[in-house]
């Protein structure tokens, strides 16, 4: 735990350093209003990273989140086009439900058919995108087809922060509560930390992983509506490849790919770090190639930290194994 906290401190330090570097070239970037804009822009990544964190924590991975987002977003857009009168809260509830259903499909395949999560979600990722194509024949839903209320919801500001940003804050708080104060959160850590031991303590490992996929899917669905409404466009390929950013945010945030180690704070900081790089580097004239290289380097550095921590633990285990001879 102490190690994790120090890793979060390192991440905060890295973010501050990054901001200082950018500010030295372009002071306008660190004004409060711009920082709020960057935060809002990163909100979808934060929400998805929190869902992904739970999945990775339980030794799985969900590659279908971006496809889930696109399909849910498209369904919301189509409903809005056909029935403009459906109020936004109903759409949000629908997005949460549809996303959760897609997550449940992933979770069910992992739980009951014990297919490796990476295979399941690679498959459903393609299927979800394919369904969008079947629904639309590849055509777009554009801004002028959407109702004003539909588009306005994520942009409406409360105390200077758009609702999209507030939703990221609320999801962070809820996940923080779930992970630290509920038996479900405890089960996620136990299953990821040592599934063999978790079984004996009465935890249903498969069901716990199933629920992690439901959470991830539900948050992807929510983000789907917010994304389509904010950018005021829906088509087959929105958020293409975004699942990799989501996984990267988790890894940078100290979520162990081997499972068992994760913090809500880490996942949020990991997403913010990536979000700031994406927003800041173009402003200070860093070429797109270097943006990718810097994001990539951050991932490798983060994984190196993780594997270092894992290695020192391995030595202790070996010693006890020899002792047992």
């Amino acid at each position: 735990m102490t190690q994790l906290k120090s890793r979060e401190a390192i991440l905060v330090g890295a973010i501050l350093l990054l901001l200082a570097l950018v500010a030295s070239r372009f002071p306008g970037f660190v004004t409060p209003s711009n920082l709020l804009a960057v935060f809002t822009d990163t909100a979808p990544l934060i929400i998805l990273a929190l869902g992904q964190m739970v999945v990775i924590l339980t030794r799985s991975i969900d590659l279908s989140v971006a496809a889930n987002l696109a399909l849910t977003g498209m369904v919301c857009a189509l409903i809005n086009v056909s029935f403009p009168g459906v109020p936004v809260p109903v759409l949000v509830a629908l997005a949460l439900g549809l996303g959760a259903l897609m997550g449940a499909i992933n979770g069910f395949l992992v739980w009951k058919l014990t297919i490796p999560p990476i295979v399941v979600t690679l498959g459903t990722m393609t299927i979800f995108r394919g369904i969008i194509f079947l629904l639309t024949d590849g055509s777009w839903v554009n801004s002028h087809q959407m109702s004003a209320a539909f588009k306005a919801f994520p942009r409406e500001t409360i105390f200077g922060l758009p609702i999209l940003g507030w939703i990221a804050v609320i999801v962070t708080l809820i996940l923080g509560l779930v992970m630290s104060r509920t038996t479900l959160g405890r089960a996620f850590f136990a299953v990821g930390g040592n599934p063999h031991a978790a079984v004996y303590t009465g935890i249903n490992v498969g069901r716990t992983q199933f629920l992690s996929f439901v959470i991830s899917g539900m948050l992807a669905g929510l983000t789907g509506y917010l994304w389509v409404a904010r950018y005021a466009v829906a088509f087959v390929d929105i958020a293409g490849g975004f699942e990799l950013d989501v996984v990267a945010a988790c890894v940078i945030g100290g979520v162990s790919i081997a499972g068992g180690i994760a913090t809500v704070g880490g996942a949020v900081l990991g997403a913010l770090f990536l979000g700031i790089i994406k927003n800041a580097l173009p402003v200070i004239d860093v070429s797109p190639f270097w943006q990718l290289a810097i994001s990539g380097a951050a991932i490798i550095i983060a994984v190196t930290f993780n594997s270092r921590a894992g290695r020192s633990k391995g030595r202790v285990i070996l010693k006890s194994a020899e002792h047992a001879q």
């Binding site: 038996t183 405890r186 850590f189 930390g193 978790a198 004996y200 006890s320």
Partner: peptide, 23 residues
Amino acid sequence: DRGKQGAILDMPIFQNVTLPSLP
């Protein structure tokens, strides 16, 4: 196999102890 099936090493002591009693 108390190493493999016993404790959850990344969890704090109190969470390990209370895990089966949580319900």
